[in-house]
Simulated scan of single mutants.
Amino acid sequence: MNATPLRGALLAALACTLVGASFTANSVLGDYPYAGGQALRYGLAALLLLPLLHSRDGSHPALLRTLTGRQWARLATLAAIGMVGFNLAVLAAERSAEPAVPGVFVGCAPIVVGVLVPLLDGRRPSPAVLYAAGLVAAGAFTVQGWGRADLAGIVFSAGALAGEVGFAVLAVPVLRPLGPKLLSATVCAVAAVESVLLGVLLDGHGFLRMPTGQETLVLVWQAAVVTVIGFVCWYSGMRQIGAERATLFSGLIPVSAAITAPLVGTGTYGVGQGAGSLLVGVGVALGSGVLRRRPVPVPGSATREGVASRGTA
């Protein structure tokens, strides 16, 4: 077993597990203004990431001066689609569809990324990754099942899928020059600004209010743990094993949500969830490369805009 794939896999797994657990905590923020909550979460996360930027992996704020206008546009799009847009799509979908519906759509992200990233890089999709992505998607569906949904719920669920895909795909060309920490800090700052603008546009000055004690705890946990730790782990893992293999671990999001839901009385974990979790685990293990004895090359690492494996997070 090669150390680099294993380390990258563990980082991606931790990130997706944290995201899945955050879905359970989101129920506490049901009455809090959406845009205001996003602004607080990502703004606090950006501030918490600042002390981590002067490090050996090259995550130095001065690197931002070297970015082109096209790269800044990509970062803004990443924040808008993969962060603010993703969360908005999930929230909107759950207004007319059961939570399982957007979850099933998001569970298909490994298949889309497994096809899209190689094509954008001028390569053929890896059959092994696509087979593994199919297992992960089937496992995610088994964990969550399929719930009630109307046309609006399906459309917004498809938007959530686009956000999950964009969070990985749009980051590929800027991950190499910035590194996981600076990339995370930058997109969090951009997402905070975008959330403020969205809040003012939709809700005026009422987009922000003082959170309750429970809401404060959830917002701080989402910012400090899910965003700071989760984002850095995600992009560190993606840099080591590539976007295609890292996205396989998004199948752990519904698994983590299903495991943590009984802890707060919002769901149960039974035979179906156990079987789905097993499918996800098999797909992740087969597709991520952690079971291979020889090192697994990172797809696109030799290209100028590919994912680079250079050091730790």
Rank of each mutant, 00 (worst) to 15 (best):
P5W: 02
R7A: 14
G8P: 01
A9S: 15
A9G: 15
L11Y: 15
A13I: 10
L18E: 06
V19I: 13
A21E: 05
L29C: 04
Y34E: 02
A35Q: 12
G36E: 03
L40Q: 09
R41D: 09
Y42C: 06
Y42H: 12
L44M: 11
L44A: 10
L44P: 00
L49P: 05
L50S: 13
H54S: 10
G58T: 04
S59W: 02
H60K: 10
P61T: 05
A62P: 02
L64K: 07
L64H: 04
T66H: 11
L67G: 04
G69K: 08
Q71H: 11
A73D: 00
L75G: 00
L75E: 01
A79R: 07
A80L: 13
A80I: 04
A80E: 01
G82A: 06
A89N: 06
V90R: 04
V90K: 02
A92D: 05
A93Y: 13
S96P: 01
P99A: 12
G103V: 00
V104E: 04
G107N: 07
C108Q: 02
A109H: 08
V113Q: 09
V113R: 06
V115E: 08
P118V: 11
L120N: 06
G122T: 08
P127L: 12
P127E: 13
P127C: 10
A128T: 15
V129N: 09
V129Q: 09
Y131N: 07
A133Y: 07
G134M: 09
V136S: 07
V136Y: 04
G139P: 09
G139N: 09
F141C: 14
Q144S: 14
A149D: 07
G153H: 08
V155Q: 14
G159F: 05
G159E: 10
A160Y: 05
E164T: 15
V165A: 01
F167W: 11
A168K: 00
L175S: 11
P177H: 12
L178N: 01
P180Q: 10
K181L: 11
L183V: 01
A185I: 05
T186P: 06
V187K: 11
V190S: 00
E194T: 03
S195R: 05
S195I: 03
V196D: 14
D203N: 15
D203E: 15
H205Y: 08
H205K: 09
H205M: 11
R209L: 10
Q214K: 08
V220K: 08
V220A: 14
A223P: 06
A224W: 12
A224K: 10
T227E: 13
T227C: 08
F231A: 09
R239Q: 15
Q240W: 15
A246R: 00
T247A: 11
L248W: 03
L248S: 04
F249N: 01
V255N: 07
A261F: 04
L263R: 07
V264T: 14
G265C: 06
G265W: 08
G267N: 06
G270D: 05
L278E: 02
L279A: 00
L279V: 00
V280H: 01
G281Y: 04
V282C: 10
V284I: 15
A285S: 06
S288R: 02
R292P: 03
R292S: 15
R294S: 15
V298T: 13
R304Q: 13
G306V: 01
S309L: 06
G311V: 05
